[in-house]
Amino acid sequence: MSIKTSHTRLFLYLILGLIVLFCTNVFLGSIHISIEEFFRGLYDASSTNHLIIHAVRIPKALSSILIGIGLGLAGFLMQILFRNPLSGPYVLGVTTGGSLGAALFILGSALFSFGFIHPKFGIPLFSSLGSLAVLAMILVVYKRIKDPMTLLITGILFSSISGAVISLLAYFSSAERLREFVFWSYGSTHLMNTYELFLLALSCVLCFVFALKNAKPLEAFLAGDVMAKTLGVDVDKIRFQIIIFTGLTVGVLTAFAGPIAFVGLVVPHISRQILKTSNVRLQLISVSLIGSLFVLACDVVATLPGSALSLPINAVTSIIGAPILLFIVIKTKRFIF
C-alpha cells in the first residue's frame, strides 16, 4: 500500500480540522464564556464554568466524535457489504430493533411493569436487547440464505415489524410517555458519562480493527462476489463478520445516543469524493475523521450557541446531510457506487 503525499496532507488537514472543531464545540455553548473565563474554567475547579466545561461540554464533544466514527464506519461497511450507495447503518434493521427496545421500556410501562429501573440504565439496556434480538434474527436468516439481497429485504422487513409494534405501543400509551419516546428518538449527544463513552469507544475500536485486518478482503468484495471468491476470500465468513461488527457498533450507538440519521449514509460518500481511492485502509481513516468532523459540526449547530434553545441532533444531521448527498449525486452526475 502506498500512501501518497497527497493523502498524508489530506489526513493532516482533517486532523487539524478535527482539533479546531473540537475546541470550538467545547468553547461554544448556550452560555457565553469569554476566552479568559474559559481557560480559568478548564483548570480551576472552583470556577463556576468548570462544571459546565467538564461535566457537560467535553463529554458532549467526545461523544459527538465517537458517534461520528461509529456511524461512519458502520455506513462504510454496509455500503461495501451491499455494494449499494444507499445503504446506511440502519439498513440491517438493527436500529429499529433498538428503537423497539427503547419503546418497550418507555411506552410499555402501561402494559408491563418494570419495577423501578432508572431510565438512564433501562433505556440503553432495553435498546441493546432490541438491537441484539434483531441482529440475532438477521444472522439466523443469513446462515440459511446467504444472499445479500435477501439480507437487505430481511432488514427492511424487521424494520417494518418493529415500526408497527412501536406504533401499537404508542397508540396505547399516555401523552407523557409518548412525549418521552419522541424526545428519545430525536437522538442525543448529551449525557455520556465515562462508562458510556468507554463502551462507545470500545465498539468503535473493535469495528475499526476488524475492518483494518480485513482491508484486502473488503477491497476484493468491491470487485464483486465472484472475483472475491476466486481470490480466495471466504465471502460468507467475511459477510457474517461484517454483520456482527456493524450490528454491535450500531446497537451500542443507538442504545446511548438514540437513532441518529444520515451520518452513516453521507459520510462514506463525502470520504469517497475527497479521497478517490478504493484502498480500504485509507478510507477507514478518512471515514472516521470525516465522521467525527461531521457530527461535531452538527452538534455545534444544534447547540445554537448563545441561545437558550437547542435543536435535536437528528434534525440537524438530516438538514445538513441530505443536501450534501444531493450535491454529491448531482456533481458525479449519476448515483454510481
Binding site: P217, L222, M227, T230, L231, K276, T277, S278, I336
Partner: peptide
C-alpha cells in the same frame, strides 16, 4: 486463477489498485 465476465464493479478502483488485489491469496 480465474477471469470471468464480471458483474458490475466498483468504478473508483485505480488500475494499479485493482492489480494489487492479486496479492490477496
Amino acid at each position: 486463477a480465474f477471469m470471468f465476465q464480471t458483474e458490475t464493479v466498483y468504478p473508483f478502483f485505480k488500475v494499479h489498485e485493482y492489480l494489487e488485489l492479486a496479492n490477496i491469496p
